[in-house]
Amino acid sequence: MNSKFQHLDLVDILSERHFLLRSITEKLWNDSSEIYISNSEWFIMARIYKKQPTISYVSKHVDISRQATHKFIKSLESKGLVEIHNVENNKKEKCLCLTPLGEECYEKNEALKATLEKKIEAKIGSENLSLLTEILKLDWGLYNEKQ
């Protein structure tokens, strides 16, 4: 067992592993691409991929303040990754979609994460990876899910 995690409880271990995985995936992307994309921007892109959600929907379904979400969306738009469109019959709402470049980046990042998952599988074994994945997907009965 990794001595760094020996004295941590479940919540802190999950948090540390999450932070580590996000840091690794962000570095893998940014080392292989000229377009810098932050973890917060990836969270937003994940909510948009293959959908056309409204900005308010995205704001409610990412754990980022509404103001920061708008800032990240503008940043994604300026990078050519996201387009903002008017919603038909609604002058107030705007919807989002990934541009072809945005979809390409998202799919390349998914491939990078799959490679990382293969490294984890090689280290802990297929059965342990499957078991871990299934345990994390279970309803832990802690709260009503937002989505």
Rank of each mutant, 00 (worst) to 15 (best):
Q6N: 13
H7D: 14
L8S: 02
D9L: 09
L10T: 08
V11E: 14
V11A: 14
L14V: 02
L14D: 03
S15V: 15
S15P: 05
E16S: 15
E16C: 13
R17N: 08
H18A: 11
F19S: 13
F19H: 11
F19I: 15
L20F: 13
L20E: 15
L21Q: 03
R22F: 00
I24P: 03
E26L: 10
W29N: 05
W29S: 04
N30T: 14
N30A: 14
S33A: 12
E34T: 15
I35K: 06
I35N: 00
I35H: 01
Y36W: 12
Y36A: 09
I37P: 00
I37D: 00
S38A: 11
N39E: 06
S40I: 05
S40P: 03
E41H: 01
W42P: 01
W42R: 02
I44F: 04
M45I: 03
M45Y: 05
M45H: 07
A46P: 04
Y49N: 04
K50L: 07
K51M: 14
Q52G: 05
Q52E: 08
P53T: 05
T54N: 11
S59V: 13
S59F: 05
S59R: 14
V62P: 11
D63E: 12
I64E: 01
S65Y: 06
R66N: 06
R66M: 07
Q67E: 15
T69V: 15
H70I: 10
H70L: 13
K71S: 11
K71A: 10
F72M: 05
F72K: 07
K74P: 00
K74E: 01
K74F: 07
E77P: 07
E77Y: 02
G80K: 07
G80L: 08
L81F: 06
L81Q: 08
V82A: 01
V82N: 00
V82T: 02
E83Y: 07
E83C: 08
E83Q: 12
I84F: 09
H85D: 14
N86C: 11
V87W: 10
E88D: 06
E88Q: 12
E88Y: 13
E88C: 04
E88H: 10
E88L: 13
E88V: 10
N89Y: 10
N89M: 08
E93I: 09
E93F: 12
P100V: 06
P100E: 05
L101V: 15
G102T: 04
E103L: 06
E103F: 02
E103G: 03
Y106N: 03
K108I: 00
K108D: 00
N109V: 00
L112T: 02
L112N: 05
K113I: 04
K113C: 02
A114K: 08
L116K: 04
K118R: 09
K118P: 00
K118Y: 01
I120V: 13
E121D: 13
E121V: 11
A122V: 05
K123D: 04
I124Y: 06
I124E: 06
G125I: 08
S126V: 14
E127G: 07
L129H: 09
L129V: 13
L129P: 12
S130L: 01
L131Q: 12
L131W: 06
L132D: 09
E134A: 09
E134F: 12
E134T: 11
K137M: 10
L138P: 04
L138W: 07
G141Q: 11
G141V: 11
G141M: 08
L142Q: 07
